[in-house]
Design a protein around this nucleic acid. Structure first.
Length: 110
DNA sequence: CGTGTGACACGTA
DNA sequence: TTACGTGCCACAC
């Protein structure tokens, strides 16, 4: 449709990241670096920033750090989703500091 | 226009 | 495994 006349690369980048996150299947997960490489521009930090601002509209919990650890202030919320989706975790639930997603089993790539 | 900060990544100890 | 330093890019002040 004839709208969005301004193809701002900034918005294109945001939509690209969000689109990829929405494409992550249930029970799986990916990393900021993978998404950054998928869009072919910027870096993992830029992806993280997009998630921090616009991530509220996408399954952000399926995006974790390269080592499988969770976002600093959202691991508790992510934990709830992981339990519902049956996402395999490593470490001990009693210690969120060492809690990580088993990327070796659920890593998803676009 | 320099400095600090961040939902990051990687190497090394 | 954790801790520290460095590189990266964008944004707030």
């Amino acid at each position: 449709m004839a709208q969005q006349g301004r193809t701002g690369e900034h918005e294109v980048y945001i939509e690209a990241v969000l689109s990829l996150v929405e494409g992550v299947p249930v029970g799986r997960a990916t990393t900021y670096g993978v998404l950054a490489g998928a869009v072919g521009h910027g870096g993992p930090r830029q992806v993280g920033r997009v998630m921090a601002v616009y991530g509220s509209s996408v399954p952000w919990w399926r995006v974790v750090r390269a080592d499988g650890s969770l976002p600093l202030s959202h691991q508790c919320e992510a934990l709830v989703h992981y339990r519902e989706e049956g996402t395999p975790l490593r470490g001990r639930i009693t210690d969120a500091a060492s809690l990580r997603v088993d990327l070796d089993a659920v890593l998803w790539m676009p």
